[in-house]
Design a binder for these strands. Structure first.
Lengths: 260, 260
DNA sequence: CGAAATTTTGATCACGTTCAACTTCAGTGG
DNA sequence: CCACTGAAGTTGAACGTGATCAAAATTTCG
């Protein structure tokens, strides 16, 4: 790991996390700068490095600039559930920082570069600039909504459907931060990770994948996915990206009418 | 449904939602009052009434004073996934209000009384009093953390373990709002709901329940659960309630050091 | 280039679903 | 009060999906 202080302004405005925020909130340059000022370090993380460890205290927010990670929970019986995959623009330390001790682990599955800020510093920023508190809520709700979808997948959907939905979701998320073309993207996860994300064994995941391939819906090799029949995939998976509403602006007129 | 305006102060301070907030944030009487001022109506809802409908816009936060509901997602193939059960102190409209259109439905499973406030009004309160934005974040993170646990249950845990964990979780949540004794509580959900929550068929859920009973871990009749071997349940289920950290207070001294 | 990780394929088996019948319970009207 | 009705809970038998175990083929990486 290499630590360099802060972030340059021109770099920050194109940061995938800022790109994501732009998707649901209007931030002025000054506001973006006040967030940038919190960044304590740019960190380069090697593949397989632990970022968060289940059971330990963690009090940081890390914004992923580049690279991929996986949040997972290891069980007593040796099984593993991948809770979420973390892509550029995602935040490490959500929900870990809100708990006394992290309830899951995070590990890098590729080399990464991330920007870290102290959790307390972010909370104090929320007091000064309430908009960031709302942004945090939106982020957390987004997270919860994704989990809800995955829960439905694991509980009630067939394996082919699950896998198709998962790939479409990742594609949509990568497209949001300009890391995917119309029908193609890099998928840096092993089948073991995919299986643990979807609640399937590796052999069965492999067969499920083979089925999607044989139906001509997609190709996947060298960790590169290409959707060869987008319509067919959408039909099979019933996937539709969830539309997060934008955060309402402060209403000054309503302000005057109230004293509290 | 009967609509009466607002809430009385003495009623509000003992409202289960306020009880829950007290668990992770310090709110002054004035702050609690500013939230109370947002309540537009006290609503009495009959059993089986829809509160939120998948696909429709929903822009309210409803704080459950009494009664139980279920958030669920209905699939094309007729299957249903129960995403969460809503207890006194929980909020209806999270995450629904953050989305263009709700991505799940909510239905009352008992008669309920709830206090409704407009979502926009709450957001404006967050601008005036940033602490409420943080409270909202905490609430959302709490929700996300629960989903993460349920995802792990559905994906990787055995049925007996799932069921035991589910019951222990509900017990802990009810205890938090003073609706459960040490080892006993009301469980107003049919086995169909439990099955849909845990991703099991009704017959299998029933057999799983029978197994817990036969092992002397609990009794359940007339919708009343009694844990007869709490230690055994905890051992079997590896359950531990998740410890949400408290929301840090505003730090005035750090304030002065910064201009932004 | 060699070692390790990952992907693929096959055979067997167990768990949990499905379907069906029956029982018990709660609520309602005669 | 009891008979009736529909909902909820319980039990059984047969089936199928996906897990498990094992081994081979292939790729990645040191």
């Amino acid at each position: 790991m290499t630590n360099l202080p802060g972030v340059a302004a021109h770099e920050w405005s194109k940061h995938p996390f800022i790109l994501r925020l732009d998707g649901y909130i209007d931030l002025s340059a000054a506001e973006k700068d006040s967030l940038r000022a919190l960044i304590e370090a740019k960190i380069v993380v090697k593949r397989r490095r632990d970022l968060v460890v289940d059971g330990l205290e963690y009090r940081k927010l890390c914004f992923i600039a580049e690279g991929f990670a996986v949040r997972y929970k290891l069980l007593r019986n040796g099984k593993r559930q991948v809770l979420n995959v973390l892509l550029p623009g995602d935040v490490v330390g959500l929900p870990g920082s809100f708990l006394e001790r992290a309830a899951s682990s995070v590990i890098a599955v590729s080399d990464m570069t991330i920007h870290a800020c102290a959790f307390d510093a972010y909370v104090q920023l929320c007091y000064r600039r309430p908009k960031f508190g709302l942004a945090l809520s939106w982020l957390a709700v987004h997270e919860a909504a994704f989990y809800a979808e995955h829960l439905t997948d694991a509980g009630r959907r067939a394996p082919t459907e699950r896998l198709a939905r998962f790939l479409l979701e990742i594609h949509a998320r990568l497209a949001m931060v300009a890391r995917a073309s119309e029908v193609e993207f890099e998928l840096p996860f092993s089948q073991e990770v995919l299986g643990d994300a979807l609640g399937l064994s590796v052999p069965h995941l492999n067969r499920t994948l083979a089925q999607l391939r044989s139906e001509g819906l997609l190709t996947l090799n060298k960790r590169r996915v290409q959707f060869t029949d987008m319509k067919g995939l959408q039909l099979l998976s019933q996937f539709q990206p969830l539309a997060l509403a934008r955060i309402p602006e402060r209403d000054q007129s309503a302000e005057a009418a109230l004293s509290s």
